[in-house]
């Protein structure tokens, strides 16, 4: 089996515990307005097709940097769209004693078969899941991403019950996710989850905007600035229940 890979990056420092080798999967159905990897959307347009062993051989060249808890992180795109390949990859990673982390939007999640069995199996070989909650309000979520958040929040509950280590992240976009009411609501939701070891607002930036232009699409958030340090601190305080 081969995975459709968008790109590989040797140095991820904020994408899971320790230093991470990043594997960006191709393909995503979400259409987040701030997406900085819009070139990963189209599932049929990919740069590389690699087997799990090929990916892991590449990753293992960086094992010496993993002493403080590092490993591989699969991101995207949406990794769960290639769940069969992902399962094989993580299973083999654990055979090689490589720590695994899944960075997902949760969008493909459903409790229906065959997905749920595969997902349950996947979690056996997953050390950390980084779940990105784009927006707590369903209507706003739809506006921002083109999809409902219902199954995403359900995914969070499923993860919580599974016992896997969870990081919750949210991109802080001025005018969209940065108001205190939404942040408090998000906090309320997070408070119902177990095994959440890190909650982190991510600073919105427009560094990926050029890719939209290259793909011939209009980037709607052109005029939105990155949030300042105070706004980020405020969001972090609320999401972590400190405020």
């Amino acid at each position: 089996m081969k995975g459709k890979i968008h790109s590989l990056e040797s140095f991820g420092s904020v994408d899971g515990p320790g230093l991470r080798y990043l594997i960006f999967f191709q393909g995503c159905y979400m259409r987040c307005k701030y997406c900085h990897n819009a070139d990963t959307w189209d599932p049929n347009h990919f740069d590389m097709e690699l087997t799990a062993d090929e990916v892991l051989d590449k990753a293992e060249r960086f094992r010496s940097y993993w002493k403080n808890g590092g490993g591989i992180t699969v991101s995207g795109g949406e990794a769960l769209l290639q769940i069969d390949f992902l399962l094989e990859l993580f299973k083999k990673a654990h055979e090689r004693d490589i720590n695994t982390c899944l960075d997902t939007s949760g969008q493909p999640f459903t409790r229906e078969e065959p997905f749920i069995s595969k997902f349950t199996e996947l979690l056996k070989y997953t050390d950390t899941v980084m779940l990105d909650i784009k927006h707590i309000d369903d209507e706003e979520h739809k506006k921002l991403t083109g999809h409902t958040n219902k199954n995403i929040l359900d995914c969070a509950k499923f993860l919580s019950d599974s016992g896997v280590n969870i990081w919750i992240r949210q991109v802080l976009v001025p005018g969209i996710t940065d108001n205190d009411e939404y942040l408090h609501k998000t906090r309320e939701f997070i408070a119902t989850l177990h095994n959440v070891t890190k909650i982190e607002p991510l600073r919105y930036h427009s560094l990926g905007a050029f890719k939209w232009k290259e793909l011939g699409m209009k980037y709607e958030l052109e005029d939105v600035d990155s949030p300042d340090d105070d706004a980020l601190q405020n969001a972090s305080d609320i999401l972590n229940g400190r405020k």
Binding site: S13, V14, S64, Y65, W66, N68, R203
Partner: peptide, 25 residues
């Protein structure tokens, strides 16, 4: 700085991991 981490504490930790690996190589 952003590539190393979100806080100075995180950045220092990342740097130590990177140097441990690099010099052990």
């Amino acid at each position: 700085p952003d590539a190393l981490g979100h806080t100075d504490e995180e950045r220092a930790k990342t740097l130590v991991s990177a140097m441990d690996g690099y010099f052990d190589n």
